[in-house]
Amino acid sequence: MASAPQKANLPLFYNNLIPLNSSAHANWRARSTDKAPWLAGNHAIPLTVEEFPQAQRHFPIVFTAGNNPVPIALMGLNEGVNTYFDDEGTMIDTVYVPAYVRRYPFLLAKLDAQSDQLSLCVDPDSGLVGEFDEGEALFTDGQPSTATQNILKFNEQFEQAGMKTQNFMDELKKHDLLMDGEVSIRRDDSEQPFVYRGFQMVDQAKLRELRGDVLRGWNQNGLIALIFAHLFSLDLTRDIFARQIGQGKGPVKVQANV
């Protein structure tokens, strides 16, 4: 899930990306924040499979459309609507925060397309790193500080979780278990239901038809538990819909792509 530091193809949230080094950033610090304005206008956040058990309690977990789907947590059902963070990025209700959000503004990325080596990079435009008076130093005596070492470790763990997630998705595709999803929700004051499409979900009919040896293997390696976490989480779609209504944030379309 690492992305090359190229401005034309930056991952979600990132406006810029540069490699972190002790020469150029000797006096840089990273400061903490209780606001995430970069998250406020985003309704779908990438997830790793290791997060499914926690995330399923808070969000519907679905998969993006297309040939290379990835798991996402839905914090809202309409584009630009986040029901858990206000417009300034302050958390409205206590909720699980995906690792993808927590790693920002750092990221492991390839500096050389010919090499598989990953380097710790940062978004310098995030407002969270720079030559500040406050915050934790990123380098001490020309060496990565304890804070930077912890940041690197977290990002390495995220990359490992990303590989596990890719293996999970490969298994779903191998057995043709993904189908186009559709959710229809009717408001009490509306005759016409609001229909949400543009995502994928596990086809339960095909899941029931899988060979016994495949299901046994998935039960042993934990993959079946991940599938059920996804399926159980879909019930929360109506909760997110209700949150949007309660917050006056929609729905805004009769038919919408999640």
Rank of each mutant, 00 (worst) to 15 (best):
K206G: 13
R187A: 05
F194N: 06
L223P: 08
R208G: 11
Y196A: 04
L215G: 09
N219L: 07
L177H: 00
G198M: 09
G222M: 10
D203S: 10
N221V: 00
K206M: 11
L178E: 07
R197N: 14
L178W: 08
L177G: 05
K206N: 15
A205L: 11
L207F: 00
F199L: 07
N219T: 08
R216L: 15
L223K: 15
G212F: 02
G222C: 08
W218T: 01
Q200E: 10
A225I: 03
S184Y: 06
A205R: 10
P193C: 11
N221K: 00
S184L: 04
A205Y: 07
F199M: 05
A225Q: 13
L177E: 00
V183K: 05
R187P: 00
Q204F: 04
R216V: 15
Q192W: 01
D189T: 15
G212E: 08
D188H: 03
L178P: 02
G217Q: 13
L210T: 07
R186D: 00
K206T: 12
A205Q: 12
L210M: 13
G217I: 11
F199K: 09
D203V: 09
D213Y: 00
Q200A: 10
R186L: 04
L178N: 03
G217L: 12
A205T: 13
N221Q: 02
L223S: 15
R216N: 15
Q220M: 13
R208C: 09
R197M: 12
L177R: 00
V202P: 00
S190A: 13
K206F: 13
V214H: 07
Q204L: 08
F194K: 01
Q220W: 08
Q192R: 11
Y196I: 05
F194Y: 07
D203K: 03
G181V: 03
M201Q: 11
D189W: 05
V183E: 05
R197D: 10
F194A: 06
A205C: 04
R216A: 15
E209F: 06
Q220D: 13
G212N: 07
L210G: 10
V214Y: 03
D180E: 15
E191P: 03
V214R: 06
D189S: 15
M201I: 12
R208A: 14
M201T: 14
G181Q: 02
Q192D: 08
V195L: 07
Q192C: 01
S190T: 01
F199D: 07
G212S: 08
A225N: 12
I185K: 13
V202D: 04
R216M: 15
Q200T: 05
G181T: 07
L178T: 03
M201E: 09
D213R: 01
R208I: 10
Q204N: 04
G181A: 08
L215P: 04
L178I: 10
N221I: 00
A225T: 12
